[in-house]
Design a protein around this nucleic acid. Structure first.
Lengths: 115, 115
DNA sequence: CACATACTTAAGTATGTGCTTAACAATCAG
DNA sequence: CTGATTGTTAAGCACATACTTAAGTATGTG
């Protein structure tokens, strides 16, 4: 059972990589690794207007990299680790034949008892 | 000695992730995992004009994901594994505290003797 | 209620992206 | 040299992106 979410390549990656192509959005992702944060807290480090940040957050949320929930008047944003892992995994599959050979060599060396 | 190429985050990633945000370019990267290829060979699977493909290749090369060399009248393109690994590595660093805990648990379980 | 807080919506602008067609090299094969 | 192959350059077009400012909507606080 391999649903679209788990497919190694697919249109979802367009959005994920596009979202990551912007330094402001990458900085937001880095910040969210430490835990959830509100919109204004996320905006604080940047010299960009609040609507500007909100637009970045929309791009991130549309890509699936983050999700958000509004409680009262504050919107709490958090990272979606699965989306990050999917993109990482796609890159992990991109190995040349030489790299695959090196990977196997490394495996072999690690399997040998030390000394 | 940590030069800009090895920096975990940095402007180079803009280009890399932007390059990967397009499905045609990702397909080209996948193809180049198998080994170098000429421009027209790379263009062959797509319903896009040759100049269109060349533009994609320029984006990929500007990002550092591929490099190319012209020999006679054919340009040979090949993947630059280090660039792929850098992007993969950036994503690898994006872990929430819970993920880090799970990683440590996994490490612990693997260190236990079987049975 | 009055006012501040925390966003949200709308509209505009400058620049970038993904493609096209048409015309131009450069190299190689007969 | 002739002509086919392989790629390059230039110009243009439709649409997307990354912002902006100005005005609006909820939701808490004294």
């Amino acid at each position: 059972m391999l649903n679209n979410q788990d497919a190694p390549d697919g249109p979802e990656l367009d959005g994920v990589f596009h979202a990551l192509a912007d330094p402001t959005r990458r900085a937001i992702v880095i910040r969210l690794c430490e835990g959830p944060a509100s919109v204004s807290l996320l905006a604080e480090p940047f010299a960009i207007s609040l609507p500007g940040i909100v637009q970045h957050l929309q791009v991130l949320e549309a890509s699936g990299l983050i999700r958000s929930e509004k409680i009262g008047r504050v919107r709490s944003c958090s990272l979606v680790p699965a989306a990050v892992r999917r993109a990482e995994n796609w890159l992990g599959l991109r190995r040349t034949p030489e790299e695959r050979r090196l990977d196997r060599l490394e495996q072999f060396l690690k399997s040998q008892p030390p000394h």
